[in-house]
Design a protein around this nucleic acid. Structure first.
Lengths: 336, 336
DNA sequence: GACGAATAGTACATCGATGTACATACTAAT
DNA sequence: ATTAGTATGTACATCGATGTACTATTCGTC
């Protein structure tokens, strides 16, 4: 059927092991042997069967990235960064989307989605500490998002709380006193969500402002449509609002859009801040002030940690999570 | 080391083949045998070694999606759709980004990126007909984008030319007479790009309008930043322009942003139309008129065709490309 | 010119699931 | 009672690359 290493070896007049050695960069090989092998490979148009290599070596050279969805700017940009970094290390990336649904997240965690990977970078949304401990399938995992438990996992995370605090404080600094929140969960809260909520409340409290439940809006997901819907509810409620902090850029952009539709002047009447610093935020009209959470650094850290965990059997996952730096990017949506 | 099928078989008191049969849904198995096997599996917490299965069966259950980049809304949304459809068919998706670079595209095509996949969905940008014919590595491929050659490939494509013509005609209909184009290539043109250019020129010609090279702007890539830069050049050139057709939504949004920055009124002074109907376009301020190219249908068609090609040895790739339907979505960026 | 170290290459078993070919048991109909 | 299916299960070779363990050759140095 297909060309095997044995065929190449025969043509080159060497053993299959020598061909294998050639591919694996074995040091001790005479130049002419190498050339004969190369000639045989191209003559036969040989391509190695990776399933066989994987079986024998016990590795696949692939990692899985399990995220809620790809069609959200932040996650797409994150995925892109992960793919890039993985490529540098010679790893392929299999992308699995969970839709943030519990049952799918458990499947991924148990490994019953049964993909052939050496390890997983995993962003849980719906699963809590107990679930993760219980369903973990035994393969290397790097968790993105807050450290929810001690366990044999690396954690990489962004400064949700501090970033949010800084963002909300900035709104206070420019004179806002009625700062709405968009993005609370309608169901169970993800860890990152909880921390952003906490950051918001702390910032208000620290500035002596009242925390008003009426202007803390829930959304089902974190897309533009959800932000727009939440903003509409907020405007219809007639609560006084002079600023909005949204839990991510998509929500903020959707909210801005809804406000604009109703003739609200941005930022004069209502200022907006988002979180994530996606490309969209730079080029929105008006451009959006947002928290840049070190997305690339996060992706690099995750892939690097996973790679180390896979290739070094003695590696022990760090107990402290890796936290990236953040920066508040001030743009026109908060320029008064 | 790890639990094998043999261990399960021993515990259940059957042969390994029976365990294998269990996994593969073999019809003839007594209920109590099935239950013993299930019990043994969960007792041992057994997980099948997929490399072994892949080696033996010659398939991997994985397909590759090779696209220029993930951090562009259209491609992210496309990837999401592909992952979803693939999941329905039980396939995993490995994502490889080429950056639109020739050498990377060739690597993918030759299979020297050496990933373990049954087939590839491939969106070439920098490669021409000759390249594809020459470098094709022999595995099933579905090409996205214009049909560049006859060969053992399925093609799925969007109505680039007709969509563009409709979009530009709409600008004429609302009274625009000086319609700029943004998104020409600085280097070699991709097939889709060529067709959009053609659609633009044809629409102008059909309306008796002059085709002016001075207002046909080149961009290096198709991101917002490129659109903004092109718009700035256009505005600085002092050429009279009352509308912009951009080759995709990102370019259009970047261009709109740049125009807004310079105080241009949108759409009164300049109207904008994009292509792709990404989520961003719905929620931009003002919302963007754009061509919806049937993204989901495209993704479904591509995955379905590839799946059939992989699983049915008699399947012969269609000679005619699969072309999706399009629709012009009219929004505020062209409402006068 | 003899010895150890470095260099170059080989034969064969092995990774773990599945296809092939075959052996029973059980049922229903002749 | 015999036959012909149908249902249920097994033994063993096999997929293709690589690790192990071993042999053979070369080289520098005392």
């Amino acid at each position: 059927m297909s060309v095997t290493m044995g065929d190449v070896a025969r043509l080159a007049g060497v053993s299959t092991k020598s061909v294998s050695n050639y591919y694996n960069g074995y040091r001790y090989m005479r130049e002419d042997t190498r050339q004969r092998i190369e000639a045989a490979i191209s003559e036969l148009d040989y391509r190695m069967n990776l399933s066989a290599r994987n079986l024998r070596s016990g590795k696949t050279g692939m990692i899985m990235l399990a995220i809620p969805e790809l069609d959200q700017s932040y996650l797409a940009e994150l995925a892109q960064a992960v793919v890039h970094k993985a490529e540098e290390l010679g790893l392929g990336v299999l992308i699995e989307t969970t839709g943030g649904r519990r049952e799918r997240e458990i499947e991924v965690l148990e490994g019953s989605r049964g993909r052939n990977v050496d390890g997983v970078i995993y962003e849980p949304v719906a699963l809590g500490e107990e679930d993760i401990r219980k369903h973990h399938g035994g393969f290397p995992i790097v968790l993105m998002g807050e450290k929810v438990l001690d366990g044999p996992f690396d954690h990489v995370t962004m400064p949700d709380e501090a970033g949010t605090r800084t963002a909300v404080s900035h709104l206070v600094d420019i004179g806002c006193r009625n700062i709405a929140l968009i993005g609370l969960s309608t169901t169970e809260e993800s860890p990152g969500q909880a921390l952003r909520r906490k950051g918001y409340i702390d910032a208000l409290t620290a500035s002596g402002l009242e925390v008003r439940e009426q202007i803390m809006m829930e959304t089902k997901r974190w897309h533009r449509a959800d932000g727009a819907a939440a903003m509409n509810r907020l405007l219809e409620s007639k609560e006084h609002v002079d600023a909005v902090f949204a839990m991510n850029d998509s929500l903020a952009l959707g909210a801005m859009w809804a406000a604009d539709q109703r003739g609200v002047l941005i930022p004069q009447e209502i200022a907006f801040v988002g979180f994530d610093d996606t490309e969209d935020a730079t080029y929105s009209i008006p451009s959006l002030t947002t928290v840049s959470p070190g997305r690339d650094a996060l992706a690099r850290a995750a892939v690097t940690a996973l790679h180390r965990r896979i290739s070094d059997p003695d590696y022990v996952p760090g107990q402290a999570p890796i936290v990236t730096d953040y920066e508040l990017i001030k743009r026109r949506s908060t320029t008064r």
